[in-house]
Each structure stands twice: as C-alpha cells, then as structure tokens.
C-alpha cells in the first residue's frame, strides 16, 4: 500500500515568474548594457569620518562592515525564530527552524566524532563561525549587493564611466552607469560606484579577525584541557637533558609548532578571502561579458562555494581545537 500520495503535476506560478524575469533581463541588458565595475580590494567607506583615534587613525563605516552587521542581525532573527519554534512545543520543527536544526545536528555529530568529550565546549565556536560565514557568503546572492550604492568621481587609476539620470527621489537624483558610446572614458574620469553592501568575506579585516578568534580560542581550549602542560607543545624541555641530541630536535620541533600556529591565522584568513573575492570578481566579469543567462550558473556555483567555505572554516576550527585538547599523550603512544 502506498502511504504517501505523490504530488500531482501542476503548472506552478514560480516558473512563469522566473521566465518573465529572464525575458525582462534580456530587455534590461539591451537598454543598459552592463559594464565591468571597478574592482577594489579595500572596502569602500560609505560615510564620512566618524571619529579618529590617536595611533590607529580615522574610522569610517565601510560597506563590508555594514554587511557584517546585516549578517549579525539576520543571525539574531534566526535565533529568535528558532527559539519561538522550540517554545511552541512542536516535536518536529518546520520551515527555516527545521532546516537549521538539521544543519546543527549534522555539525554536532561531526563535532562529537572528532572531539569526543570536548564536543560540547568546542561546538558553539564552530557552529557560530559556520553560521556567520555562511550568512555573510550568501549575502552575495541577493540582488542589490555590490550593485546599489553611492556614485562618486573616479580617482587615480580607476576607470570611470558616464552616468545617466533615470529617476529623482525627493530631490536626489537616481542614476545608473551606462556603457559609453565608442571610446571608453579615460583613467580618472567619469564616475564609479561604491556599493552600500559588499560581501563581508571580501574584506581581509573580517576573515583575519575570525581566524584570530579561532586560533586564540583553540589555545584557550587547549589550556583548559591540559593545564599549563599545554605549553610544553611549544617549549619542549622534556627530553632536553635526558637525551641531549633528540632533546634539541624536540625543542626545535616545538618552535616550529609555534610558527605553524601563527601561519594558521594567515591560512584561515586568505582561504576564505581568496575564494569569495575571486568569486565576486568572477561574477563581475561574467556579468559584463554575457549579461543574461551565464550569471545564474555562476551564482549557483557561488552558492556552493559559500557553503563549502563556511563548512571548511568551521571544520578546521573544530579539528585544530580538538588537536589542542589531545596534547602529546597519544602521540607518544604511537611512537
């Protein structure tokens, strides 16, 4: 007997909406041909100077910081939605809460199989990093990110483009960048766009600070697990006097361990930054070459990359933290 009824085939509405959007996209690309935007590595400031600190310098609200704040707000909203879903007393969570529950379950089983009894300590760090990085990466998929912002004069070697007014909201002109006829505008002429929201992971400040949090916390978890003997991993005097020759080698290995700990920060930071920044540059280039269909395929690819990179960041945090709790005990047993 068939318990579940298969859904009958019906002509849904969504596919027609998508078809209409594709056709509109063709016309829009004819009316305003896309251009290759100015690619800039440091985040653009979207406000004037907020305040100045003596040594560090001026502080601005940058567009990647705004994206980080949006990601934080989304995370808080998600947490409240899930809290309400759990309080409602339903045994099976539905919708977004159910999806997040499935993700958390998968992550926790991974944490348990890697970290053992330290899973409960390590899991919050890993899950928070995964969720924050995931939401930050997926902001790239929302239309308007990287494309709506303030227009300003191109400076230095930036390639500017002419603008055209399309509407006027309360006295402020709304303009779009248009493709110049014939000869392109030269360097330092025309206008470029500083978007309001740029994906947080395309800013090294975001990725490096997450990496610093991850590495520093893995030291703290290690100290909690092993006490002061955790530091013998780095300054290894255990065999220094009993077996002088091997003792010196062990001491050198410990120093190398110290270097590898710092290089983890760079590796963490540049991996995430490189993947997502290269992805957004790819989106710009593909969008300017083939305006209509191709970007959808690249967006699907970016969806996948964003998920994978978030999982990788969390998984490596988990692995490094559980390595820090393990200490040298089992390593010596295998010698």
């Amino acid at each position: 007997m068939k318990l579940e009824k298969s859904r009958s085939w019906r002509w849904g509405v969504n596919r027609w909406i998508i078809l209409v959007l594709v056709i509109l996209g063709v016309f829009a690309a004819r009316a305003y041909p896309p251009i290759l935007p100015h690619v800039q590595l440091p985040a653009e400031a979207i406000t004037g100077r907020l305040f100045t600190l003596p040594v560090i310098g001026d502080f601005y609200l940058s567009n990647t910081l705004l994206a980080t704040l949006i990601g934080d707000v989304l995370l808080l909203v998600l947490a409240l939605v899930i809290r309400r879903a759990i309080r409602s007393g339903e045994l099976v969570l539905r919708g977004v809460a159910g999806a997040v529950e499935a993700l958390m379950e998968a992550l926790y089983s991974m944490a348990e199989s890697t970290a053992g009894k330290w899973a409960a300590t390590i899991f919050p760090w890993m899950a928070a990093i995964v969720m924050l990085v995931l939401i930050s990466n997926w902001l790239e998929l929302i239309p308007g990110t990287d494309s709506i912002g303030l227009i300003h004069h191109a400076e230095g070697t930036a390639q500017g483009y002419p603008v055209q007014e399309i509407a006027r909201v309360g006295g402020l002109p709304v303009v779009t960048i248009v493709k110049p006829e014939g000869e392109a505008a030269g360097e330092g002429e025309g206008y470029i766009l500083a978007p309001f929201v740029r994906v947080a992971s395309t800013d090294l400040n975001f990725t490096i600070s997450l990496a610093v949090i991850s590495v520093v916390m893995s030291q703290i978890v290690g100290i909690r697990a092993l006490g002061l003997s955790y530091f013998t991993k780095f300054l290894n005097f255990k065999t220094f006097f009993s077996r002088p020759l091997f003792g010196v080698i062990d001491f050198g290995v410990g120093l190398l361990e110290l270097i590898s700990e710092t290089s983890k920060i760079l590796s963490f930071g540049f991996r995430l930054f490189g993947n997502i920044f290269a992805g957004s540059v790819l989106l710009f280039v593909i969008g300017s070459l083939i305006p209509v269909f191709a970007q959808s395929a690249v967006l699907l690819f970016e969806f996948f990359i964003g998920l994978i990179q978030a999982l990788i960041f969390g998984m490596l945090t988990l692995v490094f933290m559980s390595q820090a709790t393990a200490g040298h005990a089992h390593e010596e047993a295998t010698h």
Partner: peptide, 20 residues
C-alpha cells in the same frame, strides 16, 4: 573535502597574489 580545502588553499594563495 577537508583534503581538497587544504590542497586548494595553496592555489588560493597564488590567486590572492595575482589579484593583489
């Protein structure tokens, strides 16, 4: 996937240098 991420990391360093 973990191994691929480690192998990919070095390629990403090259990419970052090129982008810089």
């Amino acid at each position: 996937i973990l191994g691929i991420a480690f192998a990919e990391a070095t390629a990403i360093y090259a990419l970052v240098v090129a982008l810089l």
